[in-house]
Design a binder for these strands. Structure first.
Lengths: 142, 142
DNA sequence: GCTTGACCTGTGTCTAACACACAGGTCTAA
DNA sequence: TTAGACCTGTGTGTTAGACACAGGTCAAGC
């Protein structure tokens, strides 16, 4: 399979396939015309990489997992360990995003009823300066 | 105020202050010893920048807002417009993260009851290969 | 006065996962 | 032949900082 064929097969981009090839996560052979040719092993390897990416493993994680497997070892313990780390990170980001999203919504609501004000030498934008997060207690804000 | 003093005042890092200075978002004067000195206007400017960052405006957004204000115009319409864009993006990311988080949790649960398996020529890790997102219908998975 | 640790400077590079750019080559239908 | 789609290898850009480096300044302590 050629680059674009492979990318289409899995709903990703040729650049992504080339990127993984560049990282040596994929190892195509070469056609007579110099084009990269991905045999079945590389096709299933890409499937694996994309699944892992979708599960939140970093490219570096995946490289690590693949290296482990190339030694003939079961990568399962490593995979379980890594997913826990990635999940913990995702949880942190999720909480941060929850807070951010709420603040943005609050700001939007507050700013809709505030008037415009011209800037001064010490004030760029009074909307941003005056923003106050609303309290969470018993509110129906969300 | 010097770099580190200013950073401490607002709970950020000296590198962040230097970064914004580098971008010309902050414009310190120079002390006799060559150190950057941030007068009150720049102190309130940093406060503004950090508030805007916390509300999800990009550094580029903030530059745009500051440029508008420097023309003497009220940046309020721009700020309202930008927050809507950033909120829409954040909402998309939030949904993606919801899905990712759920998949990661599902995977973790599934993989805890699966046995380890050695890799083969076409299989790096059966855990990742065999992952199936659970259905949402009436489940108590979350 | 010297030493040492903390802080300073300007400038450059790195991070992560791609996306894009470029100069030039190949393929194929019209 | 032409034109559009695709290919190559290599390099750079994206975002918001964090880090690195060589060298300078400050001030407390000895």
């Amino acid at each position: 399979m050629k680059v674009t064929e492979l990318a289409k097969e899995f709903g990703t981009t040729p650049d992504t396939v080339r990127y993984y090839t560049r990282l040596k996560l994929l190892n195509p052979t070469k056609s007579e015309n110099g084009y990269k040719y991905y045999p079945p092993t590389e096709i299933s390897r890409l499937k694996f990489i994309l699944s892992a990416r979708q599960l939140g493993f970093s490219v570096s994680d995946i490289q690590h997992i693949v290296d482990e497997a190339s030694l003939g070892k079961a990568a399962c313990p490593l995979v379980r360990s890594l997913i826990k780390e990635r999940l913990a990170e995702t949880e942190k980001q999720f909480q941060a995003m929850l807070a951010l999203r709420k603040n943005m919504k609050d700001a939007l609501a507050q700013w809709e009823v505030k008037e415009d004000k011209a800037p001064t030498s010490t004030m760029v934008c009074h909307l941003i300066d005056s923003f106050e997060p609303t309290e969470n207690n018993g509110g129906s804000h969300e």
